[in-house]
Design a protein around this nucleic acid. Sequence first.
DNA 1: TTACTTCGTGTTTTATTAACACTAAGTAAA
DNA 2: TTTACTTAGTGTTAATAAAACACGAAGTAA
Lengths: 230, 230
Amino acid sequence: MSKALSAYPQPSVTVDCVVFGYDGQQLSILLLNRKEAPFQNKWTLPGGFLHVNEGLEACAERILLAKTGLRNLFMEQLATFGNVDRDPRGRVLSVGYYTLVNPRKFNLVAGEAANDVNWFPLAKLPAMGFDHKHIFTVALNRLRAKLTYQPIGFELLEKKFTLTELQQLYECILQSNIDKRNFRKRLLESGILKATGLKKTGLKNRAPELFEFNETNYKKLSKEGYQFKI
Amino acid sequence: MSKALSAYPQPSVTVDCVVFGYDGQQLSILLLNRKEAPFQNKWTLPGGFLHVNEGLEACAERILLAKTGLRNLFMEQLATFGNVDRDPRGRVLSVGYYTLVNPRKFNLVAGEAANDVNWFPLAKLPAMGFDHKHIFTVALNRLRAKLTYQPIGFELLEKKFTLTELQQLYECILQSNIDKRNFRKRLLESGILKATGLKKTGLKNRAPELFEFNETNYKKLSKEGYQFKI
DNA sequence: TTACTTCGTGTTTTATTAACACTAAGTAAA
DNA sequence: TTTACTTAGTGTTAATAAAACACGAAGTAA
């Protein structure tokens, strides 16, 4: 243990991100088409090597900024994937993160290492390189588990949204039907929504009210241990 | 990205384990006293460098086998800790695991890199080297969160145990009182306990029944999505 | 004016969780 | 051997939370 760190053979470390997006209809993830081997022309999660003087979350932020142009995303560490043979180039660990974004808020950037970048609905995922399918599966399970006791989806919507839009998002992620009256009751009572007094117009029916996420109150309630069961 | 992996400066990777033990009275964790710098003579979590051809979980198992002589422990990945300055020797990531053991089932082994190894009750933890206090805190929160919706504590008890012993364990970990009748009712109805027909004797009062963990049934129910709320 | 579509709202029923106290069995001491 | 002591073991009721359910209101389009 007194030997220099570099005396030991060391694994490489990447950070890979599962970027969930929602367009109002379906849940998608962001994939890049690789320009170079291994897995040339295969789709993979956006990711990259960890710089030696860069924190893990900073690395995830750097990668997402490069691919999506977005900052200050909701982001959470998922797990670290370390099967010995997960990367044909050698020993490479992947620290997985997942994040939620609204695809209409930015333009995609393929970047230099990718032929292409695209959103793929969960029902139409292509084959993926490395163990990225597995990382995706873990991320989806985490997202669903988390959503059932914490409302974390506001990043996927516009700043102002209707309760119906929010409900549809939840139904989409959880793949289940939610009772409208119970849903509205719980959310309005919870105190994590802020009425704007505005209505969404331009629809071919009655104009619904617009709400905002009350982040201040949400954080306060979270600290107090309040449980946001959906 | 076509450069050899070794062309990039690489972080070192360690695996550190939070080993929870329970002696029937209190919850403790296992700490080693370091023989060498950094943090010489300080207490730290058992851990070690990841070998380049070794899986993460295999590494955790190797470390625990060396320190405790135990195999086939309950073990779960916690998170990866990657602050740039968490190790004074350079850039070192730590993949954290936590595990549950019964301290009466084995003898501690200090190993060559440690002056000493010992159990510390949670109420009397010493200062720790690196960011190990933080890793411990994350582990404890995870353990508590997990315990409220899954009974994972059987590894901490003898093979045959009484319901009172199980309840005391839960109260100890969660730091709260549980109603005896509700607790027994839920567990007996759940089907994850197996009556042995035996009684625990040698006590100075009525001999309580001994139960075993029905792992087969537990796994079956888990797969079906059954929720074991305590 | 009428038809159509989605919005917005309360009450009842059911299920789950929490609260609660006494008798039974065994041990130890008088 | 009787009595006191300690923990084991057991059901019912009350309170709370979750689920089920239908219709008038508001706006748009024809």
